[in-house]
């Protein structure tokens, strides 16, 4: 974040605060003595534009992430799941993500799905995420802030999206090559495709830690 960007934000009215729904799954919640919370790993915070919000990650994601020894959380931004609706566009949703991120006990990785990827990217412009994972990004902001603290960035898209202009633009913006997963971009929360996608993300996260 640049100093000018901060000055501008500090002088703009803050989005209306909402009581946010945050789902958390810790390695200890698995009741598996083999799996321990590894303090060397960064926690993970997820968001999606799916209307279910945090609950979308309950079926598979949070447990799978926790099984890898990581603290796993997901947030419902304003108007999703159990979080009341309130005025504000993408900036306000990014604010919701940052507010959720600072409640996570350690510096967290942000994972955003679809429009959630755009919110996560905006959030990473204000908060030094430990990593930024963009899954099938949609409606990405034209003016993208430089991520604070230069976190590693991963872009994962479905095979059908690789040629899309939007995906190309995001990849160029961060100077990275997208990974692909088999399956439909809107159907990532359960099933075999979801498992494959999660495997890819988790092994990328492990590689960053080293």
């Amino acid at each position: 974040m640049s100093l000018t960007a901060w000055i501008r934000r500090a002088r703009t009215p803050e989005p209306v605060p909402v009581r946010r729904e945050i789902a958390v799954f810790e390695p200890a919640d698995l009741f598996d003595i083999e799996i321990k919370d590894n303090p060397e790993t960064n926690p993970v915070l997820c968001c999606t534009s799916d209307a279910a919000g945090a609950a979308a990650f309950n079926a598979l994601w949070l447990k799978r992430i926790a099984s890898s020894g990581r603290y796993a959380a997901a947030v419902s931004v304003r108007g999703q799941g159990g979080t009341p609706a309130a005025v504000g566009g993408a900036e306000a949703r990014a604010h919701d993500v940052v507010q959720a991120a600072v409640t996570v006990p350690r510096q967290t990785v942000l994972i955003g799905h679809r429009e959630g990827a755009a919110w996560a990217a905006l959030a990473a412009g204000r908060y030094p995420a430990a990593g930024l994972v963009l899954v099938s990004p949609q409606r990405f902001p034209k003016q993208l802030p430089k991520p604070v603290g230069e976190p590693p960035v991963l872009l994962v898209v479905s095979e059908s999206e690789t040629q899309s202009k939007e995906v190309q633009a995001v990849a160029d913006e961060y100077g990275i090559t997208p990974l692909t997963f088999a399956g439909a971009p809107d159907d990532v929360f359960k099933g075999a495709a979801a498992e494959g996608l999660l495997d890819a993300i988790l092994s990328w996260l492990d590689a960053q830690q080293r």
């Binding site: 974040m1 901060w6 500090a10 803050e14 989005p15 605060p17 009581r19 604010h95 940052v98 507010q99 600072v102 409640t103 204000r126 908060y127 030094p128 604070v148 603290g149």
Partner: peptide
């Protein structure tokens, strides 16, 4: 609060 918090680590907005 908004003028006091550290720019990349906001205070809780409640």
């Amino acid at each position: 609060r908004s003028q006091t918090e550290i720019p990349d680590f906001p205070m809780p907005d409640d």
